[in-house]
Design a protein around this nucleic acid. Structure first.
Length: 314
DNA sequence: CGACTTTGACCGGCGC
DNA sequence: GCGCCGGTCAAAGTCG
């Protein structure tokens, strides 16, 4: 399984919206000079990039972008098309796809990379063997009530929430996105010296999770994977914090022309590419950290992305 | 003292 | 069936 590149993000809407790409050719464009793009190529990423600016300033309007993200324009059925999609939405596997060798994620979509760098794996294995070889039995007097929450019926596969993955050029692993997150785990990533962190939204009844890892090929790139949909607005208290990191204008759709603090990548499936092919579609949103970008009227990135996970309560 | 992080252990899925 | 592996739990530690 590890030989086959996996879809970072799969969404039928991409097929539905293929006219967007075929009509404009934007998805077929070669990117402009992109810092670090070679790393993505070497990772097996599709070399078709476009800048987020191009995307936003191009013919794609908010609805198109929303559709590209899997949003319905109304945003009240954010993932309805996903849920109704009979095809496997395997974004959930980008971080490993569950156990069983599904360990290849977007960090290692390329088998040659997987086979060529094993240092992290070795470390992890030794660590694991240490742990697995010495099962600790003393804590609860042998009672394994620790994992009661994970109990589920036999044969009932846990349903994965739809996921979105973003690649962000940043020195900070955990990027502020306006929501409150609690870290609940960290794991060594196979074939990578960088660990993967697991976060959960701290808001009650919100089941959204977030996974953050750093690309071992391009350590300046942070890969953030969101899973699920927020059922609440962004905490007001955090808007300020986020605004401290991101320009305030990013949170006010009325204001245009923010300066993004870092390159921002959005990974999406490549148009027309499916099946065994590497369907990863990377967009380079910002090539130059210091460059100013004009965002169109339909909102700013930071408004778009959180809204992707906002689901109205029934 | 509450919220959050760290970290070792465990669970379950999957491939062999 | 076994082992690997990603994901999660939860106790302990840290921080403000």
């Amino acid at each position: 399984m590890s030989d086959e590149p996996r879809d970072l993000y799969y969404h039928d809407l991409f097929q539905d919206n293929q006219h967007l790409a075929s009509g404009t050719g934007m998805y077929n464009q070669k990117p402009p000079t992109i810092a670090g793009s070679s790393a993505y190529n070497s990772q097996g990423f599709d070399p078709s990039y476009m800048s987020f600016t191009e995307c936003l300033q191009g013919p794609m309007d908010y609805n198109s972008l929303a559709s590209a993200f899997g949003l319905s324009p109304s945003s009240s059925e954010v993932f309805s098309s996903v849920e109704g999609n009979p095809k496997p939405i395997d974004v959930g596997d980008l971080g490993g796809g569950g156990g069983g060798g599904g360990s290849d994620n977007l960090v290692t979509p390329n088998s040659s990379i997987s086979s060529s760098s094993t240092e992290a794996g070795v470390e992890e294995d030794s660590d694991k063997s240490k742990k697995d070889g010495q099962p600790k039995e003393t804590e609860d007097g042998g009672e394994s009530s620790k994992k009661v929450g994970k109990a589920k019926k036999k044969g009932e596969k846990k349903q994965r929430e739809p996921r979105f993955a973003f690649m962000t050029k940043s020195e900070v692993d955990h990027l502020e996105d306006g929501y409150r997150w609690r870290k609940y785990g960290q794991k060594a990533v196979k074939n990578s010296p960088y660990p993967r962190s697991y976060y959960r939204c701290t808001t009650q009844k919100c089941t959204v999770k977030k996974r953050v890892e750093r690309s071992f090929q391009d350590p300046t790139t942070v890969i953030t994977t969101y899973e699920g949909q927020h059922n609440h607005p962004i905490p007001a208290t955090l808007r300020g914090n986020a605004a401290a990191m991101f320009p305030p204008s990013m949170f006010t759709p009325q204001i245009r022309g923010p300066t993004f603090p870092q390159d921002f990548f959005v990974q999406m499936p490549q148009m027309g590419s499916q099946g065994g092919a590497n369907s990863i579609y990377s967009q380079n949103l910002m090539n130059n950290p210091h460059q100013q970008y004009q965002l169109p009227d339909y909102g700013l990135l930071q408004d778009i992305i959180p809204s992707m996970f906002l689901k109205q309560e029934p």
